[in-house]
Design a protein around this nucleic acid. Sequence first.
DNA 1: CCCCATTGTGCAACTAGTTGCACAATGGGG
DNA 2: CCCCATTGTGCAACTAGTTGCACAATGGGG
Lengths: 202, 202
Amino acid sequence: MSLPHAILTALLEKPSSGLELTRRFDKSIGYFWSATHQQIYRELGKLEAEGLIRALPAEQPARGQRKSYEVLPAGRAELARWTAAAQDPKPMRDTLLLRLRAAAVVGTAGIEADLRRHLELHERQLAEYREIEKRDFPPGRDSPQDRLHHLILRAGIDLETFWTQWLAHALQEFTALPAGGPAPGVTDGEASNGGAGTTPRR
Amino acid sequence: MSLPHAILTALLEKPSSGLELTRRFDKSIGYFWSATHQQIYRELGKLEAEGLIRALPAEQPARGQRKSYEVLPAGRAELARWTAAAQDPKPMRDTLLLRLRAAAVVGTAGIEADLRRHLELHERQLAEYREIEKRDFPPGRDSPQDRLHHLILRAGIDLETFWTQWLAHALQEFTALPAGGPAPGVTDGEASNGGAGTTPRR
DNA sequence: CCCCATTGTGCAACTAGTTGCACAATGGGG
DNA sequence: CCCCATTGTGCAACTAGTTGCACAATGGGG
């Protein structure tokens, strides 16, 4: 739905080959819209077929050769259209929260280690964003583009900040919980055989 | 990937028919794992075929009739396994941030209204979460299950708080921007024909 | 009694994203 | 010179989620 527009944006910022795009999707743009190289090549083909981008004239366009693309006017127009069009935020899907909800039923055994790991990953990401902020947005720069890019980076920083704080709080909560976590089968308030979860009832 | 586990969790909390599940996915569980009724029916079929759930014996199991399901021991075991298994956070994909990045290239014309709309939507969601918190988590309740459920709700509240604050900040930033937003084609620092974005160059 | 809105279940086709390869060109090390 | 790791491009099959219907049962209004 949005990959073609992510690619158009990246190509407008700088005409690139598939591999260069892949690298840029591993940082910068990819921080909020990830894509694999296979997706990118496929989409480049479609965009070219639709006349939104074109391959830059290269010396020898043999296979296994870099092919760079640039955005055509129709591509820019499509991107402007898409950017301005209203879009509903799509409903969230978060595995970790779902697992926690499941843990409330089947027990928290085993999940704590992974929470800790996620905390570390988010801390690392946060540090990386802060590094970028320091490097790319020193106090002086405030052209409209800088402001927008900074705003986007700020969203990343604030989101990672939320996750690190929430995860830290969750882990704290866990240490206060009875050892091994809540027993399974508690929602109905009746007795259950409980246990490790792998034991079949009756 | 996670839908079957979301369904197992919901069914463990309370055996339900497809429609009941659909309703519960429109609130509660669905706040962090959304699913359509078609997805749910399809998945119920698979789970039953795999022996993880079974249909509760009903009076007349004719078509067009409610069929309720309950989780079998194998289903509970699978859910416990999945909950404890390590999982990498999957890379984020956020359309709004992508559109803002595109706007930095093709101009911000038209996007502001949608930011305002998103702000309202997030404010409404936040209010709803706060309502639920007040209703379901009065000061006294703090069984392990309550604590976990509250923790999850807190994540929702904090996320919506982030979005409302960030969007408010973004809108503020916009009023400070030159009218109509940045001109297109600015990244190379050279002159461009700028304009509305639909005008082809040359 | 029959029409029609509502409730409930489900299939089929499609779109987007992921996984697992295949294979060409390049260039340095033995 | 030839092997083999690296770089770069791409196809094919699969999985997950979405969209658009179809159709049965139920129950109230004319």
